[in-house]
């Protein structure tokens, strides 16, 4: 106590893996639960989190991921990534974590702003129609900074 409470956060999601997406979503939702204003900005592979065709199929990387504590050669085995994702997903379901689409709906309904990065949308040749309904807008980096004004920025 004594320190100024955080009033606003803008969280950037730049990764498209299971473990790259969930932490940012949990932080955004957690901010709103505490009454903290929150924005989410999806950039680069983070766009997979809001891509309707992809956000139910994100995976944990099983290659080059020392956190899994399995042999390097084993990580590249066909089906390894799917299996690891499945196991983690099962555990999260037991803990009652929402799926990514449901999580986005929850965060949107909580009043957080959800934005896609224009540069990345152009780079991957995507458009508004590729994204879930909860996305408020496709914005430039400059517009992101305007929206983030007066708060903390967290890059994930």
């Amino acid at each position: 106590m004594g320190a100024e409470p955080i009033e606003k956060v803008s969280i950037i999601l730049s990764k498209g893996s299971f473990d790259g997406i969930y932490p940012g979503l949990i932080m955004a939702n957690g901010a709103r639960m505490e009454g903290i204003e929150a924005n989410l900005f999806f950039t680069f592979f983070g766009l997979d989190a809001i891509n309707k065709a992809r956000n139910e199929h994100v995976k944990v990387a099983s290659v080059g991921n020392p956190g899994l504590h399995i042999a390097t050669w084993l990580g590249g085995f066909p089906g390894m990534s799917a299996m690891v994702t499945h196991k983690l997903g099962q555990r999260m379901e037991e803990l009652d974590f929402p799926s990514i689409p449901e999580f986005l709906e929850l965060i949107h309904d909580s009043g957080a702003g959800l934005y896609a990065c224009k540069a990345s949308v152009d780079m991957f040749e995507l458009s508004r129609a590729d994204f879930v309904d909860e996305i408020d807008d496709i914005i430039t980096v400059g517009e992101f900074y305007e929206k983030a004004a007066g708060g903390q920025i967290i890059f994930t």
Partner: peptide
């Protein structure tokens, strides 16, 4: 619903 919850209790 969640939307209304935040309208009723804006600070969480």
């Amino acid at each position: 619903p969640v939307k209304e919850l935040y309208q009723l209790f804006p600070k969480g």
